[in-house]
Design a protein around this nucleic acid. Structure first.
Lengths: 189, 189
DNA sequence: GGAAGCAACTTTCCACTGGAAAGATATGGT
DNA sequence: ACCATATCTTTCCAGTGGAAAGTTGCTTCC
């Protein structure tokens, strides 16, 4: 009967999205890359994903839950990126910078813990993994201060690059621009 | 006549606040220190300052204008802090870290240009001043890469400290914790 | 010294936001 | 067949930033 035709308000996608969690994270990344976390709107993300703005509640809880998942994903990606460079301190540092510049939304959220639920178990596990990857790359360091210097230098370079504070003469490849700077670490004793 | 008694809706302050610009900036700093720029609400700032939420329009334009003024103030404060250390590279670096940790709201806003009007003349002037102060402190550096390393290390340490990523064993004085790390710069050639 | 004009605020309105609550729909196990 | 649960939507509400118009008080000029 014709009366069995139902009203599909927003789209012709089936009622159950099926992959909302991943799509939501990707849409969030897109939104943050355009306007930063301050301009991030759940309703905007929902429109990008083609669902209602309350659809995320089931998967992530509130907005902070969405960003918690994003941060956790970021720490996992960072751990992978750093680990992939073996034990080479310099290239691990370059990888750190490349990760930050290649995933600015993740990076931005990761280091602003007041945006997410810092005690989430999944997140803590990912942080632990990233921490161990970094520690492994730093295994040749003599003192804790040299470790701090190494972390500070790559983290600072990445942040300055992302904020647009560095001179344009450095080109558009952050990793290559960072390498000679990071290499100075080898002089430190 | 009694009929001359007027209605004073929000407070018994005179109609003209008289010092709203400064009070607004201070209230904004307070609000950002509590919740970060994401949670910043003009209406909250207005309540803290005891005015209506549209009172800032005259002084700052929109929300971005308020943050533009805050960023400009920040660059001025940073220039002062760095200049005060004379030509000492190490202590200038410590001053950079102390500024960031002592004025987290300013620092946070300053390096997120999408929060404010980056082409504002007042802001550009303050940025210029800060840039020259930093360049002066770095005057003894041999190459551009060592300058980048120095800036990255203090900027990175400050950001990591503010995000709570550094181990608590470093104590609660960021400047003193940073000094030995910054001092490693003297080994760089 | 009084009126004109400008500076500094308030009120009101509107479209948008995040979240709570309740309802709708699909899916898989029994 | 049917129920339990997972996944989504609708509806509602208080809070938000900004536009527009109105109010108040200061200052300057004749």
């Amino acid at each position: 009967m014709l009366s069995t035709v139902r009203f599909r308000p927003m789209t012709d996608r089936p009622y159950h999205h099926g992959d909302l969690r991943r799509v939501a994270l990707a849409a969030t990344v897109e939104a943050i890359e355009q306007g930063g976390p301050v301009a991030l709107s759940l309703r905007d993300v929902a429109r990008r994903a083609g669902v209602s703005h309350t659809a995320f509640k089931y998967h992530f809880g509130a907005k902070a839950g969405l960003l918690t998942a994003l941060a956790a994903e970021g720490y996992d990606l960072l751990a992978d990126a750093v680990t992939a460079e073996g034990g080479d301190l310099i290239e691990a540092g370059v990888a750190y910078v490349r990760f930050a510049v290649g995933h600015p939304a993740h990076f931005e959220v990761m280091f602003h813990p007041n945006l997410y639920n810092a005690d989430d178990p999944q997140l803590l596990a990912a942080q632990e993994r990233a921490g161990q990857a970094l520690t492994a790359a730093l295994s040749t360091s003599a003192t804790e201060n040299t470790e701090l210097a190494a972390w500070s230098i790559v983290h600072g370079f990445a942040n300055l690059w992302l904020s647009g504070a560095l001179p344009p003469e450095l080109g558009d490849d952050a990793g290559n621009a960072a390498r000679p700077v990071i290499r100075l670490l080898s002089f430190i004793q």
